[in-house]
Amino acid sequence: MRKALVIVSILLLVAFALQFVFAAVGAFTKPAGDGAYALHSVNGSAVIPALTLLTILFAVLAKAPGRLIGLAVLPLGLVVVQALLAMFANAATDAAGASTPFGLTIAGLHAVNGIVAVHVVVGVLRGARALASPAPAGVTPVPVREGEPA
């Protein structure tokens, strides 16, 4: 299960990296139609949440420490914040439908939240790798949970 946790954490990090690529594709698509951000939307609303749920599941099954499980849950909340920020940014337009300074500020927070999410996933991956790596020779392993044999 610990190797599976590492693999799904890598996949989650790749999905987040692709999310930035898909955002750039949407931003640079000319003419910019409704489908310009389709890949960004599908990845952010389906792929990333599914991989996050798998990461949580494998963290629990791998008997990861509570801190790592909590860290694995965090991207799910950040995805919800992302959706809300995108919704507010799109709704904050003037009467003609043009962007407003407030809406652009919210859109900027959408990008910052994405960067935070990537850093969280890097932390999850580091924790997963540490959990999966064998103890060096001559070192007594520490139990993952209290009462559990080493």
Results as ranks from 00 to 15, higher is better:
133 S>D: 14
69 I>E: 10
84 L>I: 15
134 P>W: 04
93 T>H: 04
100 T>V: 12
52 T>V: 14
83 A>T: 08
50 A>T: 13
129 R>E: 12
58 F>E: 03
48 I>A: 04
70 G>E: 10
55 T>W: 07
15 A>Q: 04
66 G>Y: 02
73 V>Q: 09
70 G>I: 10
47 V>E: 02
144 V>S: 13
137 A>T: 07
125 L>W: 06
132 A>C: 11
23 A>Q: 03
26 G>C: 09
4 A>D: 12
127 G>F: 04
31 P>K: 01
4 A>Y: 05
21 V>F: 11
126 R>A: 15
3 K>H: 05
64 A>M: 09
109 L>G: 11
141 P>V: 10
10 I>R: 03
108 G>V: 13
61 L>Q: 14
24 A>T: 09
117 A>V: 09
8 V>Y: 05
48 I>S: 00
41 S>N: 08
74 L>R: 08
80 V>K: 05
24 A>W: 05
4 A>C: 07
53 L>K: 08
118 V>S: 05
93 T>P: 00
134 P>E: 14
33 G>C: 03
39 L>S: 04
32 A>R: 10
90 N>M: 08
15 A>E: 04
41 S>V: 09
44 G>P: 00
94 D>F: 02
89 A>I: 00
101 P>F: 06
28 F>H: 13
11 L>M: 14
101 P>N: 10
119 H>C: 14
115 I>V: 15
9 S>W: 03
40 H>A: 01
38 A>H: 01
143 P>L: 04
73 V>Y: 08
31 P>H: 02
94 D>C: 03
102 F>I: 10
105 T>P: 04
83 A>C: 02
6 V>D: 01
99 S>N: 14
68 L>S: 09
78 L>W: 06
149 P>I: 07
74 L>Q: 07
87 M>L: 14
61 L>A: 14
132 A>D: 15
145 R>K: 12
149 P>Q: 07
35 G>L: 12
149 P>A: 12
58 F>M: 11
33 G>I: 03
101 P>I: 06
134 P>R: 13
85 L>A: 11
83 A>H: 03
17 A>F: 15
88 F>Y: 11
93 T>S: 03
122 V>M: 15
48 I>N: 00
1 M>W: 06
147 G>L: 06
48 I>E: 02
49 P>K: 01
71 L>C: 09
27 A>Q: 12
25 V>W: 07
106 I>R: 00
72 A>T: 09
63 K>Q: 15
71 L>P: 03
24 A>F: 06
35 G>F: 07
9 S>L: 11
25 V>R: 10
77 G>I: 09
127 G>R: 00
15 A>D: 04
11 L>V: 05
111 A>F: 10
147 G>D: 06
7 I>A: 15
91 A>W: 04
99 S>D: 15
133 S>I: 07
150 A>F: 05
122 V>N: 11
82 Q>T: 06
89 A>V: 01
126 R>H: 13
147 G>P: 01
42 V>A: 06
135 A>L: 11
9 S>R: 06
32 A>C: 01
102 F>N: 05
51 L>M: 09
27 A>K: 13
125 L>N: 05
116 V>D: 11
88 F>A: 09
132 A>T: 09
91 A>D: 15
136 P>K: 06
19 Q>E: 13
119 H>N: 14
104 L>Y: 04
122 V>P: 12
130 A>L: 14
31 P>C: 01
100 T>N: 12
101 P>C: 09
97 G>Q: 04
31 P>E: 00
89 A>T: 01
64 A>I: 07
83 A>D: 06
86 A>R: 03
